[in-house]
Design a protein around this nucleic acid. Structure first.
Length: 577
RNA sequence: GCGCCGGUAGCUCAGCUGGAUAGAGCACCAGGCUUCGAACCUGGGGGUCGGGGGUUCGAGUCCCUCCCGGCGUGCCA
């Protein structure tokens, strides 16, 4: 619809330019839906853009444009010049109604496209290391990444969801040590670390067991989940593991169990990854050494103070960074670079890295290193998101790692449910902070909750279908009704909104900004729920068979769009609530 | 100090490549259920779009500058 109008418009502009002896390019005119509906269905600013170039008054040009456009091949009912020189266009009424047929014909794929056909995209997200349960921030990232993936799939891209984690480095050793210390504590052979030690990250705690020192690491993991892991080991193995090194069974069991917990959380959110990658594999396959050699070959590596450094300054960055510590252990940077090289080698056309604000510092180094290694770093995108804060009873919920007052993604999920969790997490732009309002999310009067508001709009369409079925009526097919019977202004409003959906999806996908969907759905439901409220003026199932069929068509179209939109957010579209 | 991200109604936030009179939810006030679903709806009050300058026919949107907040600036993760 809009495309056709745009085409007509450009032709008219071309004609206008030709008349003035101007054979240049036509400007990128905006054809947009005005905020005020008194300004028509579409408004065009072409005359304003051309004024200087043609040396004529904008309104004059606008008049000429209106004349040249005519009825735009039957699309336009009325056109007028307004304000400083806008051309406001009113579409012929039946053109809006075409939207309904279009929706019913394609149904579930309305809003989708094949623009991404043959393009392989990897979306990497969550990527939390298996050292503890997912935080609310990870929860946000999980929903964000999944929704981006869903959007891209809907636009025809070949999407791989991937989770990468570091399991080879120092933090996993600390994890093993933490579990072992708690294990000995559970056995009763070691004392728990004093509170003063736990409160000070610089201090470590040492106890003697069988003449050997056992240490709770200074930066050990303090969460209750570590204690629980240790107690489970104690119950299963008794004291048989006392002589085992922390790096062996303790570390392995912890990684396995914690990772299982993470996957359970993701499962509960309906999020499934295609590929799990980890640092250890890269290490075992020699990928870390290889990347180091190749970076050395282009003179980006040097040694200093016993550590191996990447020359960030040569790459145009503000500093150099350590790749391998003087202890011999790599930092995160080296495996990250090796991992991204793998992404390139695996042939993805586009790589989207979703990451929290605290990780973005690393990104330019990875990107520039890719470039230096001869890859097209332009294929690598970053989507950054800020943190999540919780508000309960009008106050910020204080969270502290040290005091173990962390609210996990699981806690939150249990409290509000998956649909609300997803809606609230995706509702805001990723690059702003997210204030998760628990009062609103757990509101007993569900009507205040925007997630339910949209779902309710869907449920009502099913209620109408049930009523229709009771009257012996089936939902109509695309050609089974006369859309001209829908001529109330509020019906046209709904149809216009439905018509915007494909462009909205395209924009959200291209910009990797799923939050637009949440607002769109809220808006559409905000037209639809009031429409249904007026049961006399807008009664769908009535004695008027023709109008009933047309309105059932509208009901089905609205449901289709709401359902498609909710699916892109991973939220259920219920038949009843 | 430097870098990134924010600052829009009492609160939480939308605002597409610059467009006309800046929107929504919550909160607050006043109303509405013999209704295909009231988990809903109708109406109302409420704004120096952080401050200042600039570009433009036109700026919440672009540029400069300052202020405020978050994050980063580790041989932490």
């Amino acid at each position: 619809m809009k495309e056709r109008l745009q085409q007509q418009l450009e032709e008219a502009i071309r004609a206008l330019l030709a008349e003035a002896g101007d054979a240049g390019e036509i400007p990128a005119v905006a054809l947009e839906i005005p905020r005020q509906k008194e300004h028509g269905d579409f408004a065009c600013n072409a005359a304003l853009l051309l004024a200087k170039r043609l040396g004529r008054k904008p309104r004059e040009i606008a008049e000429a444009l209106v004349e040249a456009l005519g009825d735009a091949g039957g699309l336009v009912d009325r056109a007028e010049v307004a304000g400083p020189g806008f051309v406001n266009l009113w579409l012929a009424g039946d053109r809006w109604r075409d939207v309904l047929r279009g929706i019913l014909e394609v149904g579930r794929s309305y809003g989708g496209s094949d623009e991404g056909a043959g393009v392989r995209v990897q979306v990497e997200f969550v990527s939390a290391n298996p050292t503890g349960p997912l935080s609310t921030g990870h929860g946000r990232q999980a929903v964000l990444g999944d929704c981006i993936a869903r959007l891209l799939e809907f636009r025809g891209f070949d999407v791989t969801r991937e989770y990468y984690f570091n399991n080879g480095g120092r933090q996993m050793r600390v994890l093993g040590q933490s579990v072992k210390a708690r294990y000995l504590e559970a056995l009763g052979v070691a004392a728990p670390p004093p509170a003063a030690v736990l409160a000070d990250p610089e201090k470590s705690w040492v106890d003697e067991v069988g003449g050997l020192p056992v240490q709770f690491p200074a930066d050990g993991y303090q969460g209750d989940y570590i204690v629980e892991l240790a107690e489970a080991l104690c119950a299963e193995h008794g004291d048989a593991l006392v002589g085992e090194p922390a790096e062996a069974i303790f570390r392995e069991v912890a990684e396995k169990q914690i990772f299982a917990g993470i996957r359970a959380t993701l499962d509960a959110l309906g999020i499934h990854f295609d590929v799990y990658s980890n640092e250890k594999t890269l290490y075992d396959e020699g990928k870390l050494d290889a990347v180091l050699e190749d970076l050395r070959a282009v003179d980006l590596i040097y040694e200093s103070e016993g550590a191996v450094w990447l020359r960030g300054t040569t790459l145009g960055l503000d500093r150099d960074r350590v790749m391998i510590r003087s202890s011999g252990e790599p930092t995160y940077l080296l495996p990250d670079i090796a991992y991204h090289r793998e992404k390139m080698e695996r042939g993805f056309d586009v790589v989207v890295d979703v990451m929290g604000a605290d990780h973005i510092d690393q990104f330019p180094f990875v990107r520039e290193a890719m470039s230096a290694l001869g890859y097209d770093a332009g294929r690598i995108e970053m989507v950054m998101h800020q943190f999540v804060t919780l508000t309960r009873a009008g106050r910020k919920v204080k969270q502290s790692t040290r005091k173990a007052t962390i609210v996990t993604a699981d806690d939150l999920l249990e409290e509000v449910g998956g649909d609300v969790f997803r809606f609230f997490m995706i509702e805001r732009r990723a690059d702003g902070h997210l204030d998760f309002d628990l009062d609103l999310a757990t509101e007993r009067n569900w009507n205040k909750n925007p997630a339910y508001y949209v779902q309710y709009a869907v449920a009502r369409t099913h209620g109408i279908e049930r009523t229709a079925a009771d009257a012996g009526l089936a939902m109509p097919g695309a050609d089974d009704f006369d859309a001209d019977r829908l001529n109330l202004p509020e019906e046209l409003e709904v149809m216009k909104k439905l018509g915007e959906f494909p462009e909205l999806v395209a924009r959200a996908a291209a910009a990797r900004e799923p939050h637009h969907l949440a607002y769109y759905l809220r808006d559409l439901a905000g037209l639809w729920n009031p429409y249904l409220q007026d049961g006399t003026r807008h009664r769908v199932v009535s004695d008027d068979a023709g109008r009933t069929a047309a309105r059932l068509g509208l009901v089905l179209a609205v449901r289709t769009v709401l359902t498609n939109g909710l699916a892109l957010l991973g939220i259920a579209a219920p038949e009843r609530m």
